[in-house]
Design a protein around this nucleic acid. Structure first.
Length: 736
DNA sequence: GCTTTCGGACCATCAATTTG
DNA sequence: AAATTGATGGTCCGAAAGCC
């Protein structure tokens, strides 16, 4: 006999009205895998069957009970047909659909007004290529003269036009041909979607959706915590579609469904563990697993690998952002490569293609492209990717600094940028900074040497006074940051993220000038490098410690000021008692303190960070001993000592080797595997100090017992997100 | 011999309909 | 309003197939 969960266990299973069902938590169904396998499920998380099989258990919830199909729709259809016949034969009658008709007409004439749906479920696809209606004649091209337009010449076009008149440049032929070709491929190869996420499972998608109330909760969280930073969805257009979809999760088109699940994923990932429990009475792990499975399935159903639909690509992008905490940067970077390739196939990287779309579509595509590229760049840094996309090899313009409400479906021309402070300020400023950086000499030297101007090498070092980044920093401050309000969370994020990024780029530019250069760095120049590093940490501390960034903290975790730490520690080793040393220790302490929750006092990354800082500490101890000065323990050392005591139980036996600071050196002794992740980032003269063998303190034997090999340290790959599984010490192997 | 797959029996739920 | 009906949805037994 089938054994359903008892009523006591699942109060919602008692008979009551549908409205009550909506308010009460729905009963827990068999997990997705047991449903699929049709085997008994104990309805726990994880369930016994999944535990036994050692697979991820994904809980599902019963959806609102489907209303019984009402035959009225069929009757109305008949009435409509008979009315049509009456109309055709000029027979007078009282039309039942007078109201409906006028509503439809009104909708079609005003469908482009602000607040109207960008595209309903039943409307044609909204992707740039999915709808011809969205294509504008190229005469309205928005390409400005100051931008060169790069348009890849389609080889098919060239082949077909070889024997035609030069004037006969009918690009519509090409488009038709392209569509026909794609259809042919679609027919020839029915199913290749399993290549990335495996085969589609038989799990019913609607069981993975949350209740409508929760859908709106998640949507609101997304609007509060995610959308202000990424701006890859158009709120006035999307909101209506989500409201519609939430009312009937059984009939959502696959692309919108993927987008909804990716929004759920992002909303959950923007929450703290406690916040998630408070809002949804479930752990982040459980909800994330459910929505990630839903998103994967919806993406598979949308055949995302061959998609031309922007919703689908946006969903893939948001999904990838949301899984950052549970993937290695290497895997994520590979997946982002897929997303970038899809974006390029759609053409959103190119103004020549974007000119063919409506203003709204083109603008949203630009936002998506930039967001994708900037995320790919960061993950590429972490994964030590040799190929990054942030290069001057494409011409998609920076998104306009306009509000969502300034972008309307019917617009023919780009809206005029009037306000400095729009709801897209964060996305715009970081894209502008990215646009500037991708053309910088130092950036090209590190990431795109082949694209560097021929004289760039000669220029290095000779124009020391002429810092590209410094000049641009002033422009950004004048153009945007000075208008920002430090009380406004989004502005606060914009100010400190931008300044932190600029400090990082100044540091990189500094090393571009001096790395391998015959010019010797004066102390003042080294101090400048230190001040950039300190600035990186200070900006990061502002972001980490302010309550204003609570909702945006998921983004802050993406930018650990790794280079800043390296620079500071190197400086402190080189000049342990310099004038700025005390400030450097204080700044590190403040950042460490702000980061403490995310480090959580445990995990391999904490040990790495502690071991790294210990290098500077050891140099300080030696210098103080030598100078005969009194020892004052930096605050950060006390914090590390406290955290270490928590994570490493004191073993009995001979007392371990201790430094002046009281830190057990042995506790931080671990092998250093890992690939060279700083290969592209030369530390300049510090390399000399670090690896020459003699070191800066040749007369102090055994100075660096924990001398971490900075050139082989996987710092970029560290994930400081407390929600990350990786921070628990499960990776990398060999360090546990 | 163990595991997986899946047809379909069985049961719960609840909107619609009927009854009193 | 209560009882009844019947469509729909969820569970999981157990036979059959697959795998080692």
């Amino acid at each position: 006999m089938a054994t359903l969960p008892s009523e006591a266990e699942h109060p919602a299973s008692a008979s009551h009205s549908a409205r009550l069902t909506d308010l009460k938590p729905r009963r827990v169904l068999a997990c997705a895998r047991c449903q699929q396998r049709k085997v008994k499920c104990d309805h726990k998380y994880p369930c016994a069957t999944c535990v036994k099989s050692r697979v991820q258990c994904v809980t599902t919830q019963a959806p609102r009970r489907r209303r019984r199909r009402f035959p009225e729709r069929e009757l109305l259809e008949r009435v409509r047909r008979y009315e049509d016949l009456l109309s055709q034969h000029n027979i007078k009658f009282d039309p039942l659909h007078a109201i409906a008709q006028s509503t439809e007409e009104k909708e079609s004439s005003t469908s482009n007004l602000e607040g109207s749906y960008e595209s309903g479920d039943e409307q044609p696809g909204i992707g740039p290529l999915a709808t011809n209606a969205a294509i504008q004649p190229p005469t309205t091209t928005t390409t400005s003269e100051r931008h060169r337009v790069y348009e890849a010449k389609p080889i098919l076009h060239a082949l077909n036009h070889e024997y035609r008149d030069c004037d006969d440049d009918d690009s519509s032929d090409d488009e038709v041909r392209q569509v026909v070709l794609q259809e042919a491929w679609d027919q020839a190869i029915e199913n290749d979607t399993h290549l990335l996420f495996g085969w589609r499972q038989t799990v019913d998608m609607y069981t993975l959706h949350p209740q409508p109330v929760q859908i709106f909760q998640l949507w609101q969280l997304y609007l509060d915590n995610v959308n202000p930073l990424l701006k890859v969805t158009h709120t006035p257009g999307l909101q209506g579609r989500i409201i519609n979809a939430a009312g009937n999760v059984l009939e959502i088109n696959t692309e919108l469904e993927a987008l909804m699940f990716s929004i759920y994923c992002m909303a959950v990932s923007s929450l703290t563990e406690d916040g998630c429990q408070a809002a949804f009475a479930e752990s982040k792990a459980v909800l994330s697993a459910r929505y990630q499975l839903g998103c994967q399935q919806a993406l598979l159903n949308s055949r995302f690998q061959r998609t031309t639909n922007r919703d689908c690509l946006t969903a893939l992008y948001l999904y990838l952002v949301s899984i950052k905490g549970i993937t290695t940067p290497q895997s994520l970077s590979s997946m982002l490569g897929v997303a970038i390739r899809i974006a390029q196939r759609i053409g959103i990287h190119s103004e020549a293609y974007l000119a063919k779309y409506t203003t709204l579509e083109a603008e949203m595509s630009r936002r998506l492209w930039w967001s994708l590229v900037l995320f790919d760049t960061r993950i590429g840094e972490m994964a030590d990717s040799k190929a990054i996309t942030l290069l001057p090899s494409w011409d998609c313009r920076v998104p306009l600094n306009v509000n969502d409400s300034d972008l309307r479906q019917e617009m023919k021309l780009r809206p005029r940028v009037q306000a400095k402070l729009t709801d897209a300020i964060f996305a715009v400023v970081r894209s502008e900074l990215g646009d500037f950086i991708r053309h910088c000499k130092f950036h090209l030297a590190f990431f795109g040497p082949a694209l560097r101007p021929a004289d760039a090498n000669a220029q290095r070092g000779t124009d020391i006074e002429n810092s590209e980044v410094e000049s641009y920093a002033k422009i950004i401050e004048e153009r945007y940051l000075k208008f920002c309000d430090l009380e406004n969370p989004l502005h606060y994020m914009t100010i400190w993220t931008t300044r932190g990024q600029i400090a990082k780029y100044q540091l990189m530019e500094h090393h571009f000038r001096y790395s391998g250069s015959p010019l010797h760095q004066a102390e003042a120049q080294r101090d400048a490098a230190l001040s950039y590093a300190l600035s990186m940490l200070k900006c990061n501390t502002e972001l980490m410690s302010s309550p204003l960034t609570d909702g945006f903290i998921w983004m802050v975790y993406n930018y650990f000021p790794f280079m800043g730490y390296i620079q500071i520690v190197q400086h402190l080793k080189w000049r342990p008692l310099s004038a700025k040393a005390d400030e450097a220790w204080r700044v590190m302490d403040e950042n460490f303190h702000a980061r403490r929750d995310s480090l959580n006092g445990k995990g391999i990354f904490f040990k790495l960070l502690a071991g790294f800082i210990l290098q500077a500490l050891t140099a300080r101890e030696a210098a103080i001993k030598q100078a005969g000065l009194p020892w004052v323990t930096p605050q950060i050392v006390l914090s590390i000592r406290g955290s270490l005591a928590e994570i490493v139980p004191r073993a009995d036996g001979p007392s371990p080797e201790k430094s002046l600071s009281g830190i057990d050196i042995g506790l931080l002794d671990f092998p250093m595997p890992m690939s060279s992740n700083l290969g592209h980032y030369n530390m300049g003269e510090y390399d000399e100090l670090e690896f020459s063998g003699a070191g800066p303190y040749p007369d102090v034997p055994g100075l660096f017992p924990q001398n971490l090999d900075l050139d082989h340290l996987d710092w970029f790959a560290m994930d400081w997100n407390p929600g990350s599984d990786l921070s628990g010490g499960t990776r990398p192997k060999g360090l546990e």
